[in-house]
Amino acid sequence: MPDLAGADADLDEINAFLRRGFGSTLGLEYTEITGDRVHARWTAGPNQHQPSGIVHGGVYCSVIEAMASIGGAAWLGDRGHVVGVNNNTDFLRATREGVLDAEARPVHRGRTQQVWQVDISDDRGRLIAQGKVRLANIADTANIGK
């Protein structure tokens, strides 16, 4: 994994890395990654719709989880990895398409866990969704997923 927030962090390299797997489906373009703030944008459209033609709530949950995890990982650095243990997302306004912005900021950062808030807004600055993610800080990363 590339350095997410160090002096040598390269946003092009980070974006290429994060677009692998499920990240390619979301299409996020990260414009800032630090341990104090993460900003990204993406273009929502029909490939992210639910049957009634609006962006699926799961897209917002996924973006919020991704943003919080990237920020948490940038803050934790080489001390370990983070894993999401709770995601609470509120859907505030429906949207069909357009450029959406997401901004993540820490609410709490401790020894064993972190909480991040993520706001998603449309191109007119209207709040579309807001979520909080609790992350566990994992030092023993060899056993994650086993």
Rank of each mutant, 00 (worst) to 15 (best):
N88E: 10
W75L: 08
D90G: 10
K132G: 07
D78G: 12
I128F: 02
E29M: 11
R96T: 12
L76S: 07
A102F: 00
N47F: 12
Q48V: 04
G53A: 04
Q130R: 14
T43E: 15
V59D: 02
V59L: 14
W116P: 00
Q50G: 09
R79G: 10
A9P: 13
A40D: 07
G21Q: 08
G71Y: 02
A16H: 12
I33D: 08
A94N: 09
D12S: 13
R19Y: 03
V59F: 14
P51H: 06
T89E: 08
T43D: 14
V115K: 04
A74K: 01
C61R: 08
V133M: 02
R19M: 12
S69L: 05
E65R: 06
G131K: 00
G125K: 03
A66Y: 11
E103Q: 12
A66N: 14
H81S: 13
H56Y: 15
V115D: 01
R19K: 11
H39F: 09
A9Q: 13
H108A: 06
V59M: 13
W75C: 10
V83F: 04
R111V: 02
R41F: 07
G131C: 01
V118N: 00
S69G: 08
V55R: 00
W42P: 00
Q50E: 09
G21V: 07
M67P: 00
V82L: 10
I14M: 01
N15R: 07
D119K: 03
S121G: 00
R19P: 05
H108S: 04
Q50Y: 04
V133T: 09
L28Y: 08
R134E: 01
E65M: 04
Q50H: 03
E32L: 15
V55I: 13
L100Q: 05
G71A: 09
A73Q: 14
V115L: 09
Q113F: 00
H81L: 15
L28A: 12
Q130N: 05
K132V: 03
E97I: 04
R93H: 10
F91R: 05
S121H: 12
A9K: 13
A102P: 04
G35M: 08
L28F: 02
T43K: 14
H39T: 14
G58R: 05
W42V: 06
V59G: 05
R126I: 05
R93I: 01
L135N: 06
E32S: 11
M67Q: 12
A104G: 10
V82Y: 06
P46Y: 01
L18P: 03
A44C: 09
V55M: 01
I54Q: 07
D12F: 10
P51K: 07
G71I: 06
V85A: 14
D90S: 14
N47H: 15
W42M: 15
H108C: 03
Q130E: 07
T25Q: 10
D36M: 11
L100E: 02
D101P: 03
G53F: 06
L26H: 04
D123H: 07
H81K: 15
V55A: 04
I120V: 14
D101Q: 12
